[in-house]
Design a binder for these strands. Sequence first.
DNA 1: GTTGACCTTCCAATGTTGGCAAGGTTTACA
DNA 2: TGTAAACCTTGCCAACATTGGAAGGTCAAC
Lengths: 133, 133
Amino acid sequence: MMNIGKAAAASGVSAKMIRYYESIGLLPAARRTDSGYRFYTDEDVHVLRFVRRARDLGFAVADIGELLALWHDQGRASADVKRIALGHVAALERKIAELQGMVDTLRMLAAHCHGDARPDCPILTDLDAGGGR
Amino acid sequence: MMNIGKAAAASGVSAKMIRYYESIGLLPAARRTDSGYRFYTDEDVHVLRFVRRARDLGFAVADIGELLALWHDQGRASADVKRIALGHVAALERKIAELQGMVDTLRMLAAHCHGDARPDCPILTDLDAGGGR
DNA sequence: GTTGACCTTCCAATGTTGGCAAGGTTTACA
DNA sequence: TGTAAACCTTGCCAACATTGGAAGGTCAAC
């Protein structure tokens, strides 16, 4: 039995985000005191930590909803969990490849830029010309 | 002299985004015909391509504003351009490292998940326990 | 009993892009 | 000349996750 501030501190999920997750249906509506304050149990905090950890691993809220459902489902197939996780890994790796491509291009351009008081700069020239796209 | 649709097709920046860039001040307000249509010159398209290329390299709009200003400034120091580019590279690499950390963790967890009909799954166990944070 | 720390809901903003609606303009063709 | 299609205009809504603030109610400590 704790209010939202305590639950936030205990779980690492801000009070703001706890209310948000409730509003979008990721979490069930919290029970309330007579005066309208939300209150949480240690079990609720456990769920919040699960959500927090999944967010830290970059899962989208929709994915976390699926993971939570599987977590609660004692008859789940581990294949379903693995599928979600590896799908997420694939998305992360696509993103990494995209960012790495940017880094490679920029590093190459920057390597040829004097970086002094003169105005000539291959970085601008590349942007100017469209980089050979 | 072309309208926004032609400028969009010629630059690779959608008409929607051209209006957006104008609204946030990244681009100056386009000239208008008597009837209110925006119109663009080849030089304007040149600027739009610059913006497009910079976006492709992951620069935020604020950075692109700086780059555009330097591009227009004949007395610029290439050091300023290089600084912006390398600052962006550093940000990209921080992001990549963050995503790579997620991938590593998930791959490790998934490697120990049977991925069959049984419910046991180290991925859920990790999320459950907080991954030893 | 007052103060301060907490809680509530609602509204807004971030950054980039797409989509839709309602209405005006231009172009092409019969 | 008429008309239909393709374009343009503005404005609002949506996404994604999160943060901030305002205005007002409640609780705890002193």
